[in-house]
Amino acid sequence: MLGRSSKAAKVAEELSHYGGVRGRSLARDALQRFLSNKAAIFCVFFLAAIVLFVLFGPALAKWNNEEIDWAVLGDIAAQGMPSVQSGHYFGTDELGRDLYSRTIQATGTSLMVGLIGTAMALVVGTTWGVTAGYLGGRVDSIMMRIVDILYSVPITLVVILILVVAGRSFTTLFIALGSVSWLTMSRIVRAQTLALKNREFIEAARAGGVSELMIVVRHIIPNLLGVLIVYASLLVPDLIFAESFISFLGLGISEPYTSLGALISEGAGTMGYGTLWQLLVPLFFYVSITFTMFFIGDGLRDALDPKDR
C-alpha cells in the first residue's frame, strides 16, 4: 500500500513538473478519424451484436444443436418453420435439428476461424516479412521465393489437400488455414519493412548506436502496426470465406459441428422444397459478418492511411 502510494506520488509529481501539453500521436489521430466514420462505427456495433448473440444466444435456446425434433421431422416445410412457440426461432434443418442453435454454433466457428487464422497469419507473416525485408540480400530472395511458390498454388485448394492428407478435424482446419494465410501478410510486411529500412530515422538510430534488434523492436514494428491492423481486418473475412467455401463443398469440419458454409450448402440443397429459411438464415449471418468486416477494414484503412481515400 505504502509502496504504491509513493510511486503514485512520484508519477504525479513528474506529471506536474513536466506538465507539457499531451501530444496527439498518430494512433490517436487515426482513432479520431475512425470514430468520425459513421458507417464503420455502425458496422462495429452490428458486429458486436453478432458476437454477443453467439456468446449469449445459447441461453435462450430450447434445443441444442444435435437434438432431433421428431415431432417436425415428417413435415419440415410445414412444421419446421421459424416460430417462437415450437422453440425453433430460426426453424429446423432437413433432419429436424434446431437451426437457431446450429446457426449460433456455426457463426461461432466462422468467427473463431477468422480470428485464430488471422492471429497465426499475423505472427508468422510479420516474423517472416520483417526478417526477409530487414536482412535483405540472399536471405530475402530465398524467403520470398518460398512465398512465391506457395502463392502460385490456389491457396484454398492447398487447404483442401492438407485436409485430405491429414484428415478432417477442427485442429487440422485451423492449422491448414493458418499455414497458408500468412503469405499475403508477409509480402505486405516485407514491402513496408524495405521502405522503412531506408528511412532516415532508422539511419539516425543506427548512428546513435542502437543495436539492430532494438531498431526492429523499437522503430520498425511500431511503424508497421497501422498496416498490420488494416490487413488483419481484411484477412478475417477472407479466412471466413475460405472456411465456408471448404465447408460448402463438404470438406470442412464434420458433424455434429457445423459452419456457415455447410449450413448454406444444406439450405441451398433444399430451397426447392419450400424451406427457404434454411438458406436465408445462415446466408444472412455470413453476409452480415463479411460485409461489416470489410466495411470496418475499409474504415480502418481510411483512418490509418488518410491519403488513400
Binding site: 501530444g23 500521436s25 498518430l26 494512433a27 528511412r199 532516415e200 530515422f201 539511419e203 539516425a204 538510430a205 548512428a207 546513435g208 523499437r218 522503430h219 511500431p222 511503424n223 502496426l225
Partner: peptide
C-alpha cells in the same frame, strides 16, 4: 560522431514523442 539529416520529418520516428 553524430549526424543531422536533410529531411527533418523523415529523420524522426513518427510514432515517438
Amino acid at each position: 560522431m553524430q549526424i543531422v539529416f536533410q529531411d527533418p520529418f523523415a529523420s524522426l520516428d513518427p510514432r515517438m514523442t
